[in-house]
Design a protein around this nucleic acid. Structure first.
Length: 219
DNA sequence: CAGTTCCA
DNA sequence: GGAC
C-alpha cells in the first residue's frame, strides 16, 4: 500500500512502514477497533488475571501477562513454553475473542501472510517504567507463521534487531492501533520494548498503561 | 539473556 | 551502552 498526498498530510487511514525483511508496521490498522479491543481485555482479565512471571534464570519480568486462545505462553524457572491450562486458575485460558482473531488474521494477510491461524494470544500489560528486554520468539512449533503484535493504550518505543543479538537494533515508536507483523526472514529477529514513559501530553489519566496483544501459532 | 540485571 |  502506498500513501497518496492526502494520506501523507492528514489521513487517519492505515499505512505500511517497512521495518525489515518480511517485517512491517501497519500504522493505525486497528484504530477503529481500539475501544472494543480494550473492552475485551477488561473482560478477559477477570477470567485470567495479569500476573508477573519469572524467567528461567530467576528474574521477575516487569510486565504483567495473561493469555487467551487454545494455548498460552508462560515462563518460570523450568523454562518458556506454551500450555493449555492457566497455572493461576487451573482452567483453560479464556477463548480468543472473535475480534482479536479477525484483527490478527487480517493484519497478517495485509502483511503478506495469507494463512495465519493463531492459536495463542499473549496479552502484555505495561505500566510506567516496565519494559521487555531484547529477545526472540522461538517457542513456537511452526516458524513459517508470523508474529502479529497489536498496540493499545500508551505509546512505546519498539526495538527491532536481527537474528543475532549482536545485530544493530532499530527503534520505532508504536502508537495505539498500530500492528507490527514479522515473519519469514525476520521471524526469529530479536525485539523488545523500551521502558514505558508516562504520556506527558495526556496527564488526564487516560490510563497510564499500555497493552500489547501478541498473536502466534504455537502448535 | 522475555533480566526495574550488572557494570562502566 | 555493553556484558553476562
Amino acid at each position: 500500500m502506498t500513501r497518496d498526498l492526502f494520506d501523507d498530510e492528514c489521513s487517519p487511514a492505515p499505512w505500511v512502514q517497512e521495518i525489515g525483511e518480511d517485517a512491517v508496521i501497519l500504522r493505525h490498522f486497528a484504530i477503529a477497533q481500539v475501544d472494543a479491543l480494550l473492552e475485551d481485555i477488561h473482560n478477559l482479565q477477570d477470567l485470567s488475571p495479569f500476573r508477573r512471571q519469572q524467567t528461567p534464570g530467576g528474574f521477575w519480568m516487569s510486565v504483567g501477562m495473561s493469555n487467551c486462545g487454545s494455548f498460552g505462553w508462560i515462563s518460570d524457572r523450568k523454562g518458556y513454553r506454551y500450555v493449555a491450562i492457566d497455572p493461576v486458575t487451573g482452567s483453560p485460558w479464556p477463548a480468543m475473542p472473535d475480534l482479536f482473531y479477525q484483527v490478527a488474521v487480517e493484519a497478517a494477510e495485509q502483511a503478506g501472510f495469507k494463512d495465519f491461524v493463531p492459536d495463542a494470544c499473549l496479552i502484555n500489560r505495561y505500566e510506567i517504567g516496565t519494559k521487555m528486554s531484547l529477545h526472540q520468539d522461538k517457542d513456537e512449533q511452526d516458524m513459517s507463521q508470523p508474529i502479529v503484535s497489536v498496540s493499545l493504550g500508551l505509546p512505546a518505543v519498539f526495538m527491532f534487531g536481527g537474528q543475532s543479538r549482536q545485530d544493530p537494533v532499530q527503534r520505532f515508536p508504536l502508537f495505539q492501533g498500530d500492528v507490527v507483523v514479522w515473519g519469514g526472514r525476520s521471524r526469529l529477529n530479536f525485539h523488545g520494548v523500551r521502558p514505558l514513559k508516562a504520556d506527558l501530553n495526556a496527564p488526564n489519566g487516560q490510563g497510564d498503561v499500555r497493552y500489547n496483544l501478541t498473536f502466534r501459532k504455537a502448535f
